[in-house]
Simulated assay, not measured.
Amino acid sequence: MTYCLRIADLPTTERPRERLMANGSQVLATAELIAILLGTGQGPGKLSAVGLGQHILQELGKCDRDPLAVLREVSVQELMQIDGIGPAKATTILAAIELGKRAFQSRPLDRTPIESPAAAAAALSQHLMWKMQERFAVLLLDVKNRLIGTQVITIGTATETLAPPREIFREVLRQGATRVVVAHNHPSGSVEPSPQDIELTRQLLSGAQILGIPLLDHLILGDGNHQSLREVTTLWDEYPQGD
């Protein structure tokens, strides 16, 4: 395929949209999928949309990086540094990536009760594990510890995140949860609690007592592992949750 040609100049059987409609999206190369999002080409040498899609992948794959892995976390600014990519194309690509993430993460809720730190960590791992920034999330449960939903409350930097108790409990109340597990990740991979983690847990336990919504645990996730603060501290003895 000559990538400097316009898509309209290609035989119908070679055009990405027509191929997708005839054979399904799974048969398209990654550059062709990007081309459908781009709609038009240009960039270096007046590339077609397919050629521009390939050019994007080449740029993201520099320094032996996996271009799809980079694409999952790429920013609008990084995309716009690529010749031929302006705000419209960059935001379209980012919107498609986010939609794909949400579609992947959306699944029928497992109504099996969350009865162990390992089960809670598994339910939250897609939101927290191996993320490059610290994230704070809540696992929302009903009175029988069955999953109502999960919610990322805040996203911080590579070393810290802010999770005000007010924001956490606001989401718990909004979702109608009667029990909750909180969790955050450590991008470093260490799952040892920091003094700040301990102090935040103390504040949350105190707030949970006032609201009558038991805080069952505070988990730290990182590098495929997890740590339960309920198991390694005495905080739940200091602030009984009545669970």
Score class of each variant (00 low, 15 high):
14 E>G: 03
28 L>V: 03
33 L>I: 08
33 L>Q: 01
34 I>M: 02
35 A>E: 02
38 L>Y: 02
41 G>W: 01
42 Q>C: 08
43 G>K: 00
44 P>I: 00
47 L>F: 00
52 L>E: 01
53 G>Y: 05
55 H>E: 02
56 I>S: 02
63 C>G: 11
71 L>S: 07
77 Q>V: 11
82 I>M: 08
82 I>G: 09
83 D>S: 15
96 A>H: 13
97 I>L: 15
111 R>K: 13
121 A>L: 00
123 A>Q: 09
123 A>F: 10
123 A>T: 05
124 L>H: 10
130 W>F: 15
134 E>C: 13
137 A>F: 08
140 L>C: 11
144 K>S: 13
146 R>K: 06
148 I>H: 06
149 G>M: 08
150 T>D: 08
157 T>R: 14
159 T>C: 11
165 P>I: 10
172 V>P: 01
177 A>F: 09
179 R>A: 12
182 V>E: 10
183 A>H: 07
183 A>K: 05
186 H>Q: 06
188 S>M: 11
193 P>H: 02
194 S>G: 00
197 D>K: 13
205 L>G: 01
209 Q>N: 11
211 L>K: 08
217 D>G: 05
218 H>D: 00
222 G>P: 06
224 G>W: 04
225 N>H: 10
228 S>Y: 01
234 T>P: 10
237 D>V: 10
239 Y>K: 03
239 Y>P: 03
